[in-house]
Every structure is written in structure tokens, then in C-alpha cells.
Amino acid sequence: MHHVEQKEQRLRRARQTRIRIANQGVARLTVNRTNLHIYATVISDDGTKVLATASTAEGEMRKALGGSGKGGNAAAAEQVGKRIAERAKAAGVEKVAFDRAGFAYHGRVKALAEAAREAGLQF
């Protein structure tokens, strides 16, 4: 399958979730996953502001993951989950809606979500 098609399908899967989240009037924790990295972003309830972000692509995370900076595994995703929770709370966000953006709730996406919950984000 062509990757552009795959991406479109994923975004199509994500669309309903986004509509549902928009109606909840709560900040949204969006996940993006690439082969090398995983990114988490907290977006304000009105969808206009990025309140917090964390990813394996940022400098301090790369250091924390050791020289290789492997951001494509569940352990790295866990770190990002913990970090996004801390940063969201620092920005005054406790409750979010989890937007897995059409990615299966499995593996890295799940690891990130569970770590964020453990670090005190409610969703």
C-alpha cells in the first residue's frame, strides 16, 4: 500500500475522534508516531494553542535516551508520556482527551498514554 494512502486512511480514522473531542471542550493530547520518533502535543480546548509538547526528537530527550537516541520504541514513548504530563500540568492542564490520531492504541502509542496517566494526566 502506498504510504500517502496509508496516511490519508489514518487521518480519516482520526477525524471522528477530533470532532468528538472538540465537543468535550477539553484539551487534547495528540500523538504522532513516525518510525524514528514519537511526538505528543497538548492543544487547547478551542484548538488554537499548543500548551505543551514533548518528543523523542528534542535535544534533552535524545540525551536521556542515550547516544543512539532511539525514539522508535516503547521505552522512549514512555519517557515522552511522562514528560508531556509534567509539561501539561505545568501549563495548568490536568484533564485531556487522548487523540491517538488514527494510530492503533497499541505499542508505543499505548506506552505513551499509560505513562502520561501514571504521571497524573487524567483521560
Rank of each mutant, 00 (worst) to 15 (best):
A113G: 06
T17W: 09
L36K: 15
G69F: 03
A54W: 01
H106M: 09
Q24T: 02
F103L: 14
R100K: 13
L112Q: 08
A75P: 00
T30G: 10
K7I: 15
G47H: 02
V50R: 13
A115P: 05
R10A: 08
A101G: 03
E86K: 14
K49Y: 04
D46A: 02
H3V: 15
F98D: 01
G102H: 01
A54F: 03
A97R: 06
H37A: 10
V96A: 06
D99T: 04
A90I: 03
K7F: 08
A64G: 04
H106Q: 14
L65M: 14
R15V: 00
R83N: 07
L11F: 08
A22V: 07
R28G: 07
D45T: 04
A27F: 05
G102A: 10
V80K: 03
V80T: 10
K82E: 05
I84W: 01
A119V: 06
N32Q: 11
G120Q: 06
G120C: 11
G69N: 09
A104M: 13
A27I: 02
S68L: 13
A116E: 07
G71W: 06
L29E: 00
A75M: 04
V26R: 11
A85E: 07
L121K: 09
T41R: 12
S55M: 11
R33F: 01
A76H: 01
R12C: 05
G66N: 06
R33Q: 10
K7R: 15
Y39E: 01
D99Q: 09
E86L: 15
A91W: 00
G102T: 06
D45R: 14
R28N: 05
K89S: 12
G92E: 15
G72D: 07
R13L: 08
A14Q: 09
E78G: 13
G71E: 08
K89W: 02
A14W: 07
I21K: 00
Y105C: 07
G69H: 03
A85P: 00
H2A: 07
R10I: 12
N32Y: 14
T17M: 14
A57T: 10
R62F: 06
A90P: 01
E114G: 07
R108L: 14
R117W: 13
T56S: 14
E94M: 06
F103C: 02
N73Q: 14
A91R: 02
V93R: 03
A90N: 09
A119T: 04
H37R: 06
F103R: 02
A75L: 05
V26H: 06
A14F: 08
N32S: 14
L36W: 08
N32G: 09
A101V: 04
L11T: 05
E8F: 02
Y105L: 11
K7Y: 09
H2S: 08
L121A: 11
R83E: 12
K110T: 01
V50H: 07
G69C: 10
V42C: 11
